[in-house]
């Protein structure tokens, strides 16, 4: 089996999520865990790693931000169309090992996507986890992802949505204006029997981790999802290496003490 060979799948649904993101539902029925990713190909343009934002045996959902050539091309996909995929790849969040714990999920911008996979997983195994606290930060109301799901999440979990600014006073799902770190700072979080999952821009993750540590979280209670340039997704091209660890096979979810805040390494 050629490990670089993408396979064709069918797009079951195309949903516009925000002005520059969309969600594809794909008939990929391979087992996966939240936090894993797939390598999506657009023949003639290239490949891009996209994290899975669902938890199902019958499909995967990919929330994709139009930021590069591959993702811009994918934005033209249509329901019923074909999509080329390799994977799922990588190590996701250690959901099994964290059963019985409180979970704090902190996402920034399109970093909320992999956490959505975690939330779906929790929903399917709700009795196995205790308190769930979601902190979701966006720059503006338009960027808010998974608006359809937010209502449910608000019912079932402690949910804080923040937006950096709301210039036009738009309706925005009870979001508070301010940085997500302000919401974390104001919240009462019990580090005992807890774990925190983070995904978002490096600056936001760094600031959030500092806050979690102030609140008594240890580095081995914090899990982050790393973003890196990848080509092979197999652990050989080396572009995604962080301190000797491959983001593609050892990550993308790392326990914080495994790689530390080494954003430049």
């Amino acid at each position: 089996m050629n490990p670089y060979l993408p396979q064709p799948y069918t797009i079951l649904e195309f949903r516009r999520e925000s002005p520059d993101t969309f969600t594809l539902t794909i008939d990929l029925k391979k087992r996966h865990s939240p936090g894993q990713f797939v390598q999506v190909s657009v023949p003639g343009i290239g490949e891009a790693p996209i994290s899975i934002c669902s938890d199902s045996r019958s499909y995967v959902k990919l929330n994709i931000r139009e930021i590069g050539n591959v993702t811009r091309a994918l934005a033209k996909s249509k329901k019923g169309g074909k999509i080329w995929i390799r994977g799922p790849y990588g190590k996701g969040y250690p959901m099994k090992a964290l059963e019985g714990k409180n979970l704090v999920l902190i996402g920034g911008g399109c970093g909320v996507a992999p956490l959505k996979g975690v939330i779906d997983y929790i929903e399917h195994h709700r009795s196995k986890y205790r308190d769930i606290h979601l902190f979701l930060g966006y720059r503006s109301p338009e960027e808010i992802l998974f608006k359809k799901e937010l209502r449910e999440w608000k019912k079932n979990y402690r949910l804080e949505v923040t937006i950096d600014q709301n210039q036009h006073g738009a309706f925005c799902y009870d979001a508070k204006v301010g940085f997500v770190t302000e919401a974390i700072n104001a919240a009462v979080l019990d580090p005992h029997k807890s774990a925190a999952f983070l995904c978002g821009p490096p600056v936001m993750m760094k600031a959030s981790i500092d806050l979690l540590k102030q609140k008594g979280f240890q580095e081995d209670q914090i899990f982050i999802s790393a973003e890196r340039l990848m080509y092979c997704a197999l652990g050989v091209c080396c572009h995604c290496m962080i301190r000797g660890k491959f983001t593609c096979v050892d990550g993308p979810v790392f326990r914080y003490d495994e790689i530390g805040a080494f954003t430049h390494d």
Partner: peptide, 8 residues
């Protein structure tokens, strides 16, 4: 690239 909407 321009034709494909993906300028290198």
């Amino acid at each position: 690239g321009a034709v494909k909407g993906a300028i290198p």
